[in-house]
Design a protein around this nucleic acid. Structure first.
Lengths: 227, 227
DNA sequence: CAGGCTTAATAATTAGTTAATAATCTTGTG
DNA sequence: CACAAGATTATTAACTAATTATTAAGCCTG
């Protein structure tokens, strides 16, 4: 396994160093940031494989950082929080964090959770760029090009398209697409997917009435045309 | 889909009941156990399809249970880990659980993770493709090929053909085929199957008048010719 | 207050069932 | 062994139901 780059964000130097020590013992490369803005900058420059993010940060707080990151990437995020009430935890998960650890925590436990995330990730490991027909997706840049021209996709559209392009030809039902677009299915109305597909077609298809890329599989879901 | 049996193990009655409620709402059959020994006994007697297992249990703890279970089964396990600094849950994460949820958790989220595991499961287990004679079925792509050429089947036709190909030679009566084509139940006029078979033959048979694949078993039903 | 996600309503499309008739099979009988 | 009566299956097309596309309004978040 190639070494994983992990960004650890916390305003407490001792915490950062401790976590860094444990993660490096697992063979990870650790980047650090001590406030929200620095975290965003470091993320955009270095594209780490995972982020450990404290909720309470000077300046922009962790929840907000998480939302911003989710808008531009599906990098796994583990949130650190001192708060213990149920609703806080839910907010964190709704925001798109992949896991949640409360302070005080044992660094060993955090490292285990990092390993756990990487263990169930391999399906999502993939190339940095995928091309299919006139469509190019660049994952690190989170950009999509149609005939070389950039196309602006929303976060959800991007993730749905990514799911399609990673397994061309495979049929995804609506629940699967919701899972791909968010972490998990929170019983949202799956017809929302229809609208996202509609919008994706509008942005990508030469003739949205006769889709060439995103095909409807009646009674089953959608699939991306094979190469 | 046949109802899934799920074993929920936790010493806290309220937690068990809450989880049970949510899982049953998803159509699962829920078994319960309140300590490790009871969990093992219930597992061995009932062979549930999935286990939700609390880490902290009286007697044998969850991690140990998980290890024992792993020794005798690859049943999917979701661990419930309470938030403490205790290092034993760390071991739990590495013991072979398929997923884990930290307490306090929302029962809806747990149910979503259960659904996610069941959805992933058949993809990892069952064959991705079945071939018989000139017919090839590809499940992830939900496509059928006849002599290498794609044949367009409706949802019901696809499911009926899948039932045939999964058990070549077995005779299915009309009620069985209806059950395969939908999730059990549904009292519909079973002569509709005749029409589906007719349409399948039209699409697949070299000579629909003299079926080579889908044979009529007079007075009983239909069967797919054996290899 | 703007963008984006969801919801909801309705139009368009596709599939599934029913029902009627034709064809075929089974069995009992001469 | 041939044949007819009754039963079962094949075929067809009209009818009904289910699914998807499209549009627009509402809502939340930032």
């Amino acid at each position: 396994m190639p070494a994983k780059k992990i960004l650890v964000v916390d305003d407490d130097v001792k915490t950062v160093e401790l976590v860094k020590l444990y993660l490096e013992r697992d063979g990870c490369t650790v980047l650090t940031a001590y406030d929200g803005l620095e975290a965003l900058r470091t993320f955009r420059e270095n594209h780490p494989h995972l982020i450990v993010l404290d909720v309470m940060l000077p300046g922009i707080n962790g929840v907000e950082i998480c939302r911003i990151l989710r808008g531009e990437s599906d990098v796994p995020i583990i949130m650190l929080t001192a708060r213990t009430r149920d609703e806080d935890k839910l907010t964190g998960l709704d925001t798109g964090a992949d896991d949640y650890v409360t302070k005080p925590f044992s660094p060993g436990e955090l490292a285990a959770r990092v390993r756990a995330i990487f263990r169930r990730l391999p399906a999502e490991r993939g190339p940095t760029e995928i091309t299919s027909g006139d469509i190019v997706m660049n994952f690190p840049k989170r950009e999509v090009y149609l005939k070389g021209k950039p196309v602006s996709l929303t976060a959800v559209e991007f993730k749905i398209l990514a799911a399609f392009l990673k397994e061309p030809g495979r049929v995804f039902d609506r629940v699967e697409l919701i899972e791909k677009a968010f972490g998990y299915d929170f019983e949202s109305y799956d017809r929302a997917i229809d609208v996202h597909v509609f919008n994706l077609r509008r942005k990508l298809e030469p003739d949205p009435k006769k889709p060439k890329y995103i095909r409807t599989v009646y009674g089953a879901g959608y699939k991306f045309a094979e190469a």
